[in-house]
């Protein structure tokens, strides 16, 4: 495992099992963007990814749990946060 590569920006669906990530960018259309903003999924937000396996992506942030379809989740670009859980 090369640690330098882990800090690369990836879409949030690439993470799972309780990993903490921080949103860097939203590559979304108007409708999805407006929904993400209303829920507080904006750049800078720290998110815990609770997904296990395939299907929709399950996220926890701002004391709320939200599920997002995998296609939409691909639009959320994140960076992993160093493990300090």
């Amino acid at each position: 495992m090369i640690y330098g590569q882990e800090r690369e920006i990836k879409s949030i669906d690439q993470f799972a099992n309780g990993r903490f990530v921080r949103i860097v960018d939203l590559d979304a259309g108007k409708s999805a963007l407006s929904r993400f903003c209303a829920l507080g999924l904006i750049p800078g937000t720290m998110v815990q990814v609770l997904t296990k396996g395939n299907g929709p992506v399950r996220l926890k942030f701002r004391d709320t749990e939200v599920v997002i379809g995998r296609k939409s989740a691909e639009k959320i670009k994140v960076q992993p946060v160093e493990d300090n859980v």
Binding site: A28, A32, R35, L39, E65, V67, I68, G69, S72
Partner: peptide
């Protein structure tokens, strides 16, 4: 094409 699925999971 499909559109986004976003939904809250209340406790």
């Amino acid at each position: 094409p499909a559109t986004p699925f976003v939904m809250e999971l209340p406790p």
